[in-house]
Measured scan of single mutants.
Amino acid sequence: KTYTFRVRIVDEETGEEKEIEVTAKSEEEAKKAAEELKKKYPNLKVELE
Rank of each mutant, 00 (worst) to 15 (best):
K32S: 08
K31R: 14
E36T: 08
Y41R: 03
A34T: 12
E13V: 13
K40H: 07
V10Q: 04
K40A: 09
V22A: 00
A33W: 15
K38Q: 14
R6S: 06
V10H: 07
Y41I: 03
T4N: 06
R6C: 10
V22Y: 07
P42G: 04
T23K: 11
I20N: 00
E29K: 02
L37W: 08
T14Q: 01
T4C: 12
V7H: 00
K39N: 08
V7L: 10
E27G: 05
L48T: 06
V46Q: 03
K25W: 13
I20R: 01
K25D: 12
E16P: 00
L44P: 02
A30N: 01
K25C: 14
K18W: 15
D11G: 00
D11E: 02
K45D: 04
E16Q: 07
R6W: 14
E47F: 14
K45I: 13
Y3G: 03
L37A: 02
E27Y: 15
E35F: 08
K18N: 08
K40I: 09
K32H: 11
K1G: 10
K1P: 14
R8Y: 14
E49I: 15
D11P: 00
K38N: 05
T14L: 02
I9Y: 13
K39A: 10
K31L: 14
E12F: 07
Y41F: 08
G15I: 00
T23Y: 14
A30Q: 02
E21G: 02
V7K: 00
E29A: 08
K45C: 07
E13D: 10
A33I: 15
V22E: 00
V10C: 06
K38D: 02
E35S: 08
K38F: 12
K40S: 06
K25N: 14
F5K: 01
P42W: 03
E49P: 10
L37M: 09
K31G: 06
I20H: 02
K45M: 08
E12W: 07
K31F: 12
E19H: 14
N43Y: 11
T4I: 12
V10P: 03
A33D: 02
Y41A: 03
D11N: 12
I20Q: 01
E35A: 10
K25S: 14
F5A: 02
E27P: 12
V7I: 15
E13N: 11
T4K: 10
L37I: 13
E27S: 06
A30L: 14
E19I: 15
A30K: 01
E21I: 15
E19Q: 10
E13R: 12
L37H: 02
E21M: 14
E36D: 10
V22K: 00
E28Q: 07
T23M: 12
E19T: 15
E47R: 04
A24I: 02
S26W: 01
L48F: 14
K39R: 09
N43V: 04
E17Q: 10
E19L: 15
V46H: 04
A30H: 00
E17W: 15
I20K: 01
P42V: 04
E35P: 00
I9Q: 00
G15F: 02
E13S: 12
I9A: 03
E17M: 13
T2V: 12
T2F: 11
E16Y: 09
K18I: 15
E49L: 15
E17V: 15
E28I: 09
E36C: 12
K45H: 09
E36W: 11
V10N: 03
V10M: 07
K39G: 06
E16F: 10
V46N: 03
E47G: 05
K40V: 09
E36G: 06
K18L: 14
K40Q: 10
V10A: 03
R8L: 13
E49A: 12
L48E: 05
F5P: 00
E36P: 01
K31H: 12
E28G: 07
T23S: 10
P42R: 01
K18H: 14
F5W: 12
T23A: 06
E29N: 03
T14Y: 01
G15D: 02
A33Y: 15
A24Y: 12
T4Y: 09
K25M: 11
L37K: 01
E17Y: 13
E17C: 14
T14M: 02
E28V: 10
V7E: 00
K40P: 02
R8S: 06
G15E: 01
K25T: 13
E12G: 06
V10E: 03
V46P: 03
R8V: 14
T14W: 01
T14D: 02
K40Y: 06
T4W: 09
E19G: 04
E28C: 09
I20V: 09
L37C: 06
E29F: 04
S26R: 01
E13A: 12
A34L: 15
V10G: 02
I9F: 12
V10Y: 14
E19Y: 15
E19R: 11
A24G: 09
A33G: 04
A24M: 05
K39Y: 06
Y3F: 11
I20W: 13
E29R: 02
V22S: 01
A34W: 15
K1F: 10
E12Q: 11
L48A: 06
V10K: 08
E16D: 06
S26P: 00
K40R: 11
E29I: 04
N43K: 04
G15N: 03
T14I: 02
P42N: 06
I9V: 10
T4H: 07
